[in-house]
Every structure is written in C-alpha cells, then in structure tokens.
Design a protein around this nucleic acid. Sequence first.
DNA 1: GTCTATACATGGATAGAC
DNA 2: GTCTATCCATGTATAGAC
Lengths: 215, 215
Amino acid sequence: MSPETAKSLETKTKLLDGALRTLTEQGIAKTSARTVAAAAGVNQALVFYHFGSLNDLLAAACRYGAEQRVARYRDRFDTITSLSELLAFGREMHEEERAFGHVSLLGQLLAGAQTHESLGSATVAGLDLWITEIEKVLDRVLAHTPFGEFVDPPGLARAVAASFVGIELYEGADPEGAGAALDALEQLGRLVAALDDLGPVAQRAVRHRLRRTQR
Amino acid sequence: MSPETAKSLETKTKLLDGALRTLTEQGIAKTSARTVAAAAGVNQALVFYHFGSLNDLLAAACRYGAEQRVARYRDRFDTITSLSELLAFGREMHEEERAFGHVSLLGQLLAGAQTHESLGSATVAGLDLWITEIEKVLDRVLAHTPFGEFVDPPGLARAVAASFVGIELYEGADPEGAGAALDALEQLGRLVAALDDLGPVAQRAVRHRLRRTQR
DNA sequence: GTCTATACATGGATAGAC
DNA sequence: GTCTATCCATGTATAGAC
C-alpha cells in the first residue's frame, strides 16, 4: 500500500469515517463501496485503491473505531476498584456509546463476518480492545468479593462484551424491550454488589456453600 | 395474496426454508432474492410473486422459523421448577440450537432490521416467542429464591434472549472466546443456584442486606 | 394462478487519465 | 501516486408466457 502522503491520508480517513457512519446508520446489508464513498464524499473507486476491497476497508474501520472509543475510557477504567463503581461507570459509558451506535456497529460487523474470515478477525480484534479493559477491571474488582474465586474473568469479560452487542442490536428493533433488559441487568449488578457488602459471618456461609457446589 | 393451492404452498415453503438456510449460512449481507431462490431451488422472481418483496419473505421466514423452534421446547419449559434445572436445560437447548445456527439467525435479522422497520418488528415477534417462555420459567423459578423479590423477570428474560443472540454472533467470529463466555455464565448460574440452597440464617442475612441496598 | 424471460438498478473492480 | 471513466456481475422488479 502507498506511503502516507498527506493527501492519501486525508482520503483514507474520510473513507474510514464514512464506513463507520454507513455501518451504524444503514447496517451491514446496505454498506457498499458506493454508499460508503458517498458518505465519505469521495469517488467510489478510491475504496479499492486505498484499501484493496470493501471488506478490507471495513476491517480497518473496525480497528480505527474501536481504538478511538476504548482510548476515550482507558484512564477511567484504571480508577475503578469496586463493583458498584464499575456498575455506575458501565451505565454512563454505555449511554454515551449507544448514542453514537458504536456498540451495535460491532454487531453489524459480526453479522457480516459470517462470510468473510478477515472481517471476523478484525471485529474480534476490535472487541478484544474492550474485552481486555473489562477483564482487567473484573480481575481487580472480583478479587475482593466472596465469590471472586468462583468466577472466570476472561470468560466473563467476553460474555459481558458479547451480551452488550446483542442488547444493542436488539435496541434497534425494540427500544423499550432493550431498556427493560438493561434495567434488569443493572438491578442484578446491584444485587451482586450488595452481597459484596455482607457481614463476615454471612460471607463465610456463602463462600462455604459455593465451595461445596462448584466442581 | 393468493389462496393456498398445494402448488403455491409448496413453493412458499421451499422459499421459507431457503431463506432460513441462506441467512444462517451466508448472513444478511449475502442474502438476496437470488441467493435465497437458489437455496430453495426455484426461480428468483417467485420471491416477489409469493411474498411481495425480499424483506417480506425474510419477515415471514423469521416467524416461521421461531415458531418451529420454540414449539420444540415449549412442553419442556413447563416442567422446569428450579434454577439448576433451568441451567441444565438452557445448556442442552443452546447446544441444539447452536448446531443449526438458529440463534445467530435472529442476530442476522436484527442487523438487517436497521433499515427495514417491518423486518425489525417481525424479528421482535420471533424473539418474543422465546422471551415469553423464558419469562414464565423465570417467574416460577425465582419466586422461591432469596432474591426473587429483587429481580424483574420480564426485563431479565429480554436480557437473556438478547445476550444469547450476541454471544452466538460472537461465536461465528471467535468460537473459543464464545465458549469461554458461555462457561463463565454457566459458572455464574451455578453460583446463583448455590445461594438458593443457603441455610435459613444466611438467607435472611442476604435478604436483609439486599432490602437495604435496593432503592 | 403460477412461473419465466427480461428490463432496469446497484455494486465491485480495473484500465487508463491526470 | 491519485483518482475517474467504464466494464461486468449481482440484485430487484415486472411484463407477459403458460
């Protein structure tokens, strides 16, 4: 691919932004080299000149977009030490991302990845940026809870990320339903956070019970 | 639409099955009147004759598919009375559906619904068949737990359904990651089930703590 | 009523202009 | 090196054959 002249970089950036806008606003099914180029305000063939193919552009856009978003929160992620802090931050962050459709974008890409191996791995890479941050926080936060030894942060981080993607896609079709789902999860989170604050006797009882049940 | 002659019905069924196959195997982005008709083994224009448009066919296919799948489990849903039974059944059912891609199909349709209102409502209707069953089970199962009064079954049922859709989409791009996510959730479920079996003293402590925290 | 042949629109990709 | 004009493939929809 070409060395980065200023002109080239400008066009590439326009295309990356156009791709993100088109994916979030129109969905993967309506995302074509033409629609993306139109959103970017450049000639359609530049998709192929600068990125080789539409899918390669989408893959690049995914990395570009995810990196931008995660960078925005990385510092704040590091300051979280308790489950209730995590809940509050999660809600806030989610509202912000939702407004721009950044979460359902990953859903659109996962849907498109069905047929394109390369798009799949790019999306997984983008998701992994989120997962890594979530995992670090879970590690730190869960270590001090009575159930910390029974949960698997890497797996749970993936479950959280994928679940949010599903809920955001769902929101596009049923906003009230998705709202109810998010409220229920938040309620559940508060419930777990409350267990965290149990007295020592009750905590020991819980821990003991769990040890007996987990294989 | 035409009265149901045998011939017409046969073609329609072929198209419905073809639509489901194409959506699961190729994804929404590659689902066109041509690809669906090819999978169905009929002329492409019959999509428009029998269903008016591709989107109307997809909407019909969604209802048709979801009804088929949920009917398969409805009786067994009714026999579940405990959280651990629910977990075991969920895992079993999930394996079965996953094998045929029936869950990620809903994800593909949600992705496509971004631009088509009618497709969105059809997908929500299909999802609602699942949600209704899940909600009934949660109602029954959670009533007897120490935290039953603190969770919202309708919201939780929606969260569960949407989360599985997200995880299945994720599985298409990262099978190991999705496996880890599912394992972590199952572990979490067993953890909650264990709380359900706490002794009366510990249960009272938990319940008391929760009452103080929930607004 | 059912379906096929065909017209028209959109999308992907490249040869060649600047 | 950057971009546009143009070609061919794919997709949607209908007019008319059976």
